[in-house]
Design a binder for these strands. Structure first.
Lengths: 178, 178
DNA sequence: ACCTGAACACCGTTCAAGT
DNA sequence: ACCTGAACACCGTTCAAGT
């Protein structure tokens, strides 16, 4: 059943706002992008954004969903030769949106919407990681701990910008143990 | 040489502000504590705080220094039976000031003062950890990676509140390898 | 339904003026 | 030197009013 014209326009307009938000949030950061500037970039007035989104955090969630989708599509297309390489790929991808990552961790506490998104994201990535590590023969008693350690290490790499060689050796240590 | 009266009063007043800030920042959080409320709790007017501190972040740095000092004094008094126990102790200590921890990671980007403090903190804790792990016979090529992984894992535990049993198994995995 | 200009509430910080 | 009341700048959000 085809959408009516009004609905189409609504989605297009919403998308324009999200597109503008994506580029600004990634380049300048969520906190450094006032609603006013976002509105100007999207070609609407500031309060119009509140017609399409409940609040600024909901705009962020839309951006996050879009980015996650794009990166996941990419991930499924790549073939990795080993686990270290896979972890490094993830780190590099996340580094391109590192401002988004730190904003999520910041707003987690004050925004229920971001909190929910963050939990879903962790559940998903931990699930993928667990499946991958099972094929590598990680002992099942240490599995849960190692999965979380890997996720935390990747997040740490993003927020503490570490040298490239340290990044590599950290991913290697995660992949091969000690 | 004794301080003159004016200097004494200045330090005492400053301390009163820091004491009020410590309790509010830890209980409610830095972001949820407007300068106004802090001023009222300290018994001064809002702008008086700017006579003693350059800005709100500098108040935070004073609180962080005080807390770090207190916890370090405590740390040196405790004797640990193994490395897992030591890591768990650190996690528990940091959990008592978890709002401070997440605020530091948040304000890191926008405040030079917090950034400097954060770097010093990491240098110090990584140094302590490295020394400890050397006595445990960790291979020196993996040392740097393992130190950073441990720090990141501890930070992850704080910001993602994980179950108690997961905490234990993560610290065990960090201490005993995989 | 969709959009806007104007206003509101909040917050960190500064300024002119006092002692 | 120390402190204050008042004001400023900024920002997210809402409201009354338009089409």
């Amino acid at each position: 059943m085809p959408r009516n014209k009004s609905d189409q326009n609504r989605e297009e307009k919403r998308d324009e706002i999200v597109t503008a938000a994506r580029s600004l949030f990634i380049k300048d950061g969520f906190e450094a992008t006032p609603i006013n500037r976002l509105a100007r970039a999207a070609g609407v007035s500031a309060n119009t954004i509140y017609w399409y989104f409940k609040d600024k955090d909901e705009v962020l969630v839309a951006v996050l969903d879009g980015e996650l989708n794009a990166r996941m599509t990419e991930y499924l297309k790549v073939t990795f030769t080993n686990h270290t390489e896979r972890l490094l790929w993830v780190v590099n991808q996340l580094e391109e949106v590192s401002l988004l990552v730190s904003t999520v961790h910041t707003r987690l506490q004050s925004s229920a919407a971001i909190n929910v998104w963050h939990e879903r994201f962790h559940a998903m990535t931990e699930g993928l990681l667990r499946a991958e590590m099972q094929t590598l023969g990680v002992a099942s008693e240490k599995m849960d701990a190692l999965v979380k350690i890997s996720v935390f290490a990747v997040e740490g790499l993003l927020s503490h910008d570490v040298s490239g060689s340290d990044k590599t050796s950290i991913c290697e240590a995660l992949a091969t143990g000690w």
